[in-house]
């Protein structure tokens, strides 16, 4: 029982660290500009986290992830 408990706790920590590592190093999100006047950009997950924290990304009707602004970024999340 104690071994199971230890194994589960360590496995959860390792799983969490693995998810963080994957998000930091490998996960890439394709972001399209506000208007289709430029190419889509592959954005890392940390950069995407920063973008969503200011309400800078939205999913459009076609399912594409699109920036909500052009030029200067908003100060903070609009919600």
């Amino acid at each position: 029982m104690a071994f199971k408990r230890r194994f589960l706790a360590v496995a959860l920590v390792l799983l969490g660290l693995g998810l963080c590592a994957y998000g930091l190093a490998f996960h890439v999100i394709t972001v399209h500009p506000e208007k289709d006047d430029a190419a889509a950009v592959a954005t890392s997950e940390p950069a995407t986290v920063k973008e969503v924290s200011i309400g800078g990304l939205k999913r459009d009707e076609t399912g594409k992830i699109r920036q909500t602004y052009t030029g200067e970024a908003p100060q903070s999340c609009p919600t």
């Binding site: 969490g16 998810l19 963080c20 994957y22 996960h27 997950e45 939205k58 999913r59």
Partner: peptide, 17 residues
């Protein structure tokens, strides 16, 4: 955005575990 937030889930899972 229909994207899996690996960093957020990983952070919460690590700290919670």
């Amino acid at each position: 955005l229909h994207v899996i937030p690996f960093l957020a889930i990983g952070t919460v899972l690590t700290v919670g575990a």
